[in-house]
Design a protein around this nucleic acid. Structure first.
Length: 502
RNA sequence: GGCCCCAUCGUCUAGUGGACUAGGACAUCACUCUUUCAAGGUGAAAACGCGGGUUCAAUUCCCGCUGGGGCUACCA
């Protein structure tokens, strides 16, 4: 790493890209980008930003570009980059240009574009729009003067001399005080800020590294980005970036600042709110289609009342003017509902393929796949997310060790027919010539009728005996899969506990 | 603190100066289906933050307040 700003100087001259060449590149349609920092997993807010960019590109026949902003060496990791790439792919948000797919506007890792950034910093310096700053920080406030009267008017030659003496000096943009910066945000309309709030912004750090707002402008411009859709947390960066576009003499892209996703308590999404990463939802057994559908509806609404969208439907329905202004709470309940909907719309084959990823290994060891598959099918309209299957279906693979107190009192102990049922039905089941759902039903219904019992007075004790609680899929289907001897075993265990209690 | 953004049911949202008795969805509740739980069906309850204007009329336009959020770095 060269020491400071000056050391890079000679190399800039060798960089071939000139502003002219970037400006004349053919401007074919919409070009949008998602530019995450690889400092962690892909979180839901980022996923939503990526989705909206992707939708804008797809709905307008444009390009969706992925740029990794990995200039923070401390925090950027390759694992994060991979996690983000995987997350986007899992969500089905394929990028047209970016890491692993390339493109004519690369490189797509910001760290590899440093020379380009510095080249434009140099141009700004030479054009008198930027200056070398050697002001010390104010001891009290730990800040530099907002507008640097001292350094900004020094002749270029003197500035370069200064830099030669001490390369560890930042470069700042010369900003005119008292000016109003106004721009039209596609979502928020007119936004105005005074340059007095901004001051002479640093564009190159004393380490010689370009500052985010500067890199971002250079990259968006040289990548021919036409629309910048990003989180509202960037709204106050926009005027600063606009100033840079202006000094460089470039036409800025259109900006749209998306409302942020917050927790149900309106606070910024964090660990405290539970799962926040795309990976976490994937591990819970959320389908990408469901997550995408859910994310779509935070901050965007269609013209009609439709809520469920396929990819193609969302692409054709999407438009920026459907995006709202206020932040939206991440409502996991609704995500689960969406997921349940999507699960139920899966074919049995698709459903099984997905849920098998979540079947515990003990189950797979204990039972054959086709048997497990039959069990899983009983839960297709009961699961909201696949990871839930273990707590839902465990009793198909293991006898209950204890009973729900209310169920025991209400259905077993408090019933005068339960003991009889638990003795007689298992015996009759064992004697059944054909042990399938239909024959079991016939037997149980016949038995209830003979004894003058309600069907549920026969079934509920059996259900509690086999599952330990009152809820399960239909008893006949369940019995078929459990087998007569297993039911007999669990019934006698229940009877044993009953007599032990008395 | 300063600057900026935002404000419709608990939540995601639709909506418009009068058609609003404010629409849809999740969640909730009830009923239904039913062997339980789900799923499905039907229905109920549930909101325009407050105060001033403008107007014949304001949830809708303007101002203030309050509340929430963001930014305020030589982080991205």
């Amino acid at each position: 790493m060269p020491e400071g700003f000056l050391a890079c100087y000679n190399r800039w001259a060798m960089v071939e890209i000139t502003p002219e060449s970037t400006e004349t590149t053919s401007n074919t349609g919409v070009r949008v980008r998602f530019a995450p920092s690889p400092t962690g997993y892909l979180h839901t807010g980022g996923a939503r930003t990526a989705l909206f960019n992707w939708l804008l590109a797809r709905s307008r026949g444009g390009s969706f570009i992925l740029r990794i902003e990995d200039t923070d060496e401390e925090r950027s990791t390759e694992e994060s980059t991979n996690a983000i790439l995987d997350g986007l792919r899992w969500l089905g948000l394929e990028w047209d240009e970016g890491p692993e797919v390339g493109g004519e506007f690369g490189p797509y890792f910001q760290s590899e574009r440093k020379e380009l950034h510095l080249k434009f910093a140099d141009r700004l310096l030479k054009d008198g729009h930027a200056f070398v700053c050697d002001c010390p920080k104010d001891e009290a406030s730990d800040e530099r003067p907002k507008f640097d009267e001292n350094c900004r008017e020094r002749p270029l030659s003197e500035q370069l001399k200064l830099l030669a003496k001490n390369p560890a000096l930042p470069l700042r943009l010369k900003v005119d005080p008292g000016q109003e910066i106004a721009f039209t945000d596609m979502i928020r309309g007119e936004v105005r800020v005074s340059t007095d709030e901004i001051g002479d912004i640093v564009i190159v750090k004393s380490t010689g590294g370009p500052v985010y707002n500067f890199s971002c402008v250079i990259d968006d411009a040289t990548m021919n980005i036409t629309h910048v859709l990003r989180g509202e947390d960037h709204l106050s960066n926009t005027p600063k970036q606009l100033l840079i576009y202006e000094k460089l003499g470039w036409k800025p892209p259109q900006f749209a600042h998306l409302p942020l996703i917050v927790g149900m308590d309106r606070a910024r999404l964090s660990k405290r709110h539970g799962a926040t990463s795309v990976t976490a939802y994937r591990e819970l057994g959320i389908l990408p289609e469901a997550l995408v559908n859910f994310l779509l509806l935070i901050g965007w609404a269609p013209k009609d009342d439709r809520e469920e969208f396929t990819r193609d439907e969302m692409i054709s329905a999407f438009s920026v003017d459907g995006i709202g202004k206020s932040s939206g709470a991440f409502n996991t309940e609704k995500l689960f509902w969406f997921n349940g909907k999507h699960i139920r719309s899966l074919t049995d084959e698709e459903y099984l393929r997905h849920i098998f990823e979540f079947v515990p290994n003990e189950w797979k060891k204990a039972k054959r796949d086709d048997h497990i598959a039959k069990v899983m099918l009983l839960f297709k309209d009961r699961v909201t997310h696949f990871a839930e299957i273990e707590e839902l279906a465990w009793y198909f693979f293991r006898a209950p060790e204890e009973f729900n107190e209310d169920a025991w009192q209400g259905i077993i102990a408090g019933s005068n027919s339960a003991a009889m049922v638990l003795k007689e039905i298992p015996a009759a089941l064992k004697a059944l010539s054909e042990f399938d759902c239909e024959h079991i039903e016939e037997l149980v219904r016949g038995y209830a009728k003979d004894k003058g019992l309600k069907l549920k007075d026969v079934i509920q004790p059996l259900r509690v005996a086999t599952t330990g609680d009152r809820f399960s899929p239909g008893f006949f289907e369940m019995a078929e899969l459990l087998g007569a001897s297993e039911i007999a075993k669990r019934s006698s265990a229940t009877l044993a506990k009953l007599s032990a209690d008395n």
